[in-house]
Simulated scan of single mutants.
Amino acid sequence: MQGRKSYTEKLFLSFRLSDRVPEDNLYRRLRETLDLSFLYRDTKELYGSTGNPSIDPVVFFKLLIAGYLENITSDRKLAEHCSMRMDVLYFLGYDLDEELPWHSTISRTRQLYPASLFEKLFNKVFALCVDSGMVSGHTQAVDSAPIKANASMESVVPKMPAAPMGDHLKKVSEENGGTQQRQAKTMSPAHITAPEHHLRRVEKHHQNLRDSPVQLVGARHKKARLLSNKTHYNPHDPDARISVKPGKARKLNYRCSMAVDTAEGVISHIQADFADGRDSQYLTDISLRI
């Protein structure tokens, strides 16, 4: 006899998440192993004594852990994904009928917390891995990869010519005739500078592209530009650097370096650097930190 399942929502039901999440589930094991209660003490000074209650700091960091494990970088998608996973809800301490924090709240909270707090959490989790015997400390595998910056190549602008400091101070004194305090205020450059000979060379190259009668296949000379970290930057993210990977287009990136203990694949160190540097430049600092 052929069976057919019919579904009618119940008005009342008896349900517990703990009964539905298996004992060997990763998030259940994390909930039982990972004690993040120290975050209440370490984040207390970041909040005022009045106003509406914020997102629970422990819940916030558990959401970030879930986002890393699920490979989700969007806060909006993270909130949607976690709301449909019973094991993640159990890990966060939420029930089926409770709404998770809004994605905008997650983004604002991330900006509120200093980088030192994230590093402290990393060290805490890493210490737990060491105590449990997951880290041997014998061999570390180190590698790096470009991470796309939240900035566009279309927004890069040329750097300004760098004037000698003596000429700059003399000009400030002549134009303003004020005190040293007023001079100090005007010393802060509004733009990032570059050597003048670099800018002249780039301008000559651009002029050659505009004057050349030859049209390359798939490109227009009037839009072609020679972009270099020596002569251009993105004002929205000045730390982003132009880099290229073989077979890929040039983009504004950062360099993410990661070290892994080879015993169980536990991440022992991770850091972000400028994308225009070489691995050998950052290896010394990574080795000392490890």
Score class of each variant (00 low, 15 high):
I290R: 11
F61Q: 10
L13H: 11
N208D: 11
F91E: 01
G3K: 11
Y233C: 09
F38R: 10
G3Y: 04
N52K: 13
T284D: 08
M84L: 15
T109F: 00
S212Q: 06
G133H: 04
T186P: 00
P235S: 05
K62V: 05
A115M: 09
E99I: 04
N253F: 03
H81M: 12
G51R: 07
D24V: 11
I267C: 10
P213M: 03
S18M: 08
D24L: 06
H269I: 07
L92R: 05
K223A: 11
G93Y: 12
E98T: 10
N123D: 14
D42L: 13
A275H: 01
V58P: 04
D42E: 15
P158F: 02
V130L: 08
A194C: 13
K245A: 12
A151F: 00
D211P: 08
A275D: 01
S144K: 02
R201P: 00
S144L: 03
V244L: 07
D285F: 00
R210F: 02
S83P: 01
R200C: 00
A184D: 12
S49Q: 06
L227K: 10
L227R: 12
F118K: 09
Q271R: 12
S228T: 14
I290V: 12
G67M: 01
P146L: 08
G265M: 04
V21F: 05
T33I: 04
E175G: 09
L69I: 14
K185S: 11
L17N: 13
Y282C: 07
S14F: 07
R278N: 10
L39S: 02
L39W: 00
R76Y: 00
P158R: 12
V260T: 07
L78A: 00
Q180S: 04
F122L: 05
R278K: 09
D211F: 02
G133S: 04
L11I: 14
S54C: 15
S74A: 06
E23Y: 07
E196W: 00
I65D: 02
E70S: 14
R225S: 10
G3C: 02
I147D: 02
D42Q: 13
S243I: 01
H269R: 09
A263H: 01
E174R: 14
T8E: 09
M160D: 15
K5L: 13
T139I: 13
S257K: 00
D24A: 12
R200D: 11
T8L: 13
E9Y: 06
R250D: 07
M153V: 11
Q271E: 15
D35Q: 02
L11S: 13
Y94H: 15
T73M: 03
G93V: 13
E264N: 15
K62N: 07
G48N: 07
G177I: 09
